[in-house]
Amino acid sequence: MRLPPLPRVAGFDDAPFTKRPGARVPLVGVVCAGTRFEGLVWGRVRKDGWTATDEVCRLLVGGKFLPQLHLVLLDGIAFGGFNVVDLPRLAGTLGKPCVSVMRRLPDLEAMERALRHLPRPERRLELLKRAGPIHQLGGFTFQVQGAEPAWVAEALKRLTDRGNVPEALRLAHLIGSAVITGESSKRA
């Protein structure tokens, strides 16, 4: 697949949320062409629930943005705690490469310990494994379904203004924080 000079991307991140079980968690999707903001979608998932994959699909399928996108980025593989995204199903449903971007290599043992305190931990672990291997390329850490890792690393480079967070994910984080708390957070 050939990468255009300004890839169009939707980047999803959750906003700050209440820690109580079953809390509604805001989900922010920012659409960018390269590093330029072009649009926004807003949804909700449940803390530690099961609807993250369906909600991202609901926000994009049938909307004006999906046909324009070259890939979909997620800030991590789960929203609202451990509402884990089924990355292969997301990529298959959207017909676009889907990428879980991480700031650093995750502590998989700590994640598994935390998952053991939630309902259906084996199913959550299965979803984590289905996301595929974790790649570290071009200064980025990610999992991908629907594209080659080298292509994704090049796309992430074009989508990042500075550091190792693509602009769509950085903006989703800042917007979610500002809407929920009244100001954007320090770390984006």
Score class of each variant (00 low, 15 high):
8 R>Q: 13
55 E>V: 15
106 P>G: 07
119 P>I: 07
114 A>P: 01
30 V>D: 14
100 S>R: 07
127 L>N: 08
15 A>H: 03
70 H>L: 08
92 G>C: 11
92 G>T: 08
53 T>G: 02
115 L>V: 01
56 V>C: 01
20 R>A: 00
116 R>A: 15
22 G>D: 07
85 V>C: 08
41 V>T: 13
124 R>Y: 05
68 Q>M: 09
120 R>D: 12
36 R>N: 02
27 L>W: 06
119 P>C: 06
16 P>N: 00
9 V>A: 10
26 P>H: 04
69 L>W: 13
67 P>Y: 11
58 R>S: 08
108 L>C: 07
101 V>I: 00
19 K>Q: 14
88 P>S: 06
48 D>L: 03
7 P>Y: 15
119 P>R: 15
124 R>A: 07
92 G>P: 08
31 V>R: 09
57 C>V: 15
13 D>G: 11
105 L>F: 10
33 A>I: 02
42 W>C: 01
37 F>E: 13
38 E>H: 13
9 V>C: 14
115 L>T: 06
60 L>N: 10
80 G>W: 05
77 I>G: 07
98 C>G: 02
66 L>R: 02
57 C>Y: 06
93 T>I: 01
43 G>F: 11
114 A>C: 13
91 A>S: 14
108 L>V: 11
112 E>G: 04
51 T>A: 12
61 V>Y: 08
83 N>I: 04
30 V>G: 14
9 V>W: 07
34 G>E: 12
16 P>I: 01
51 T>N: 13
118 L>S: 03
117 H>S: 13
78 A>S: 15
15 A>V: 13
18 T>Y: 01
91 A>I: 00
13 D>P: 08
84 V>C: 02
